[in-house]
Amino acid sequence: MNASLEAGQSGRVPLEFSDHHGALSILGFWLFLASDVVLFSCLFAVYASYGMRTAGGPTPMQLFHYGPALAETLLLLCSSFACGLCVYQLRRRSTNGTTAWLAVTMLLGLGFVAMEAHEFASYVASGATWHKSAFLSAFFTLVGTHGLHVSFGLLWAASLLVQLRRHGLNAVSARKLYVFSLYWHFLDIIWVFIFSAVYLVGRIS
């Protein structure tokens, strides 16, 4: 452990890459992200095909508003930025800094999930359930799948927070944090496409 800590401090190979198996796990996680790109592309394809089939129900223009969509976007973007700073603190070997920015990441992510849950609840309350039309089925499936990913990420981050408090920074906890940061940044990139292709495009025609 001490030997690999020194390796990271010399500035060449960071802590999370110090173990060869750990480095392989990180590559494995990239492969998972690539498969998730394909999963989301299928849901985007469904939305692109059925987004205009409103079956007499509410249209995207009636349902979506700029304010909440922009707020959710900024919350998740700030969360992603905080997660980037968390890994930056990890590289500086600051346990407190890493913990603090991970907590900020989680709070902003929680705000995002809360806003989205509120948005979904208000749609359902106004009668726009996912049974209503092909558009709403595709919408709830695409945005809901992303929301579930974020919710799962919050549970994951909470477990990392506990492990950080218990074991501090070592090759294993550093690798787990790094992999979580890849997941979190990836979810924000998916959200950029949801914000553009669903909320902005919904306001065009």
Partner: peptide, 15 residues
């Protein structure tokens, strides 16, 4: 997406 991929995600880090 490319900006975030290039700046947030440590795309070029590996063993």
């Amino acid at each position: 997406a490319l900006v975030q991929l290039g700046s947030f995600m440590h795309l070029r880090e590996a063993r």
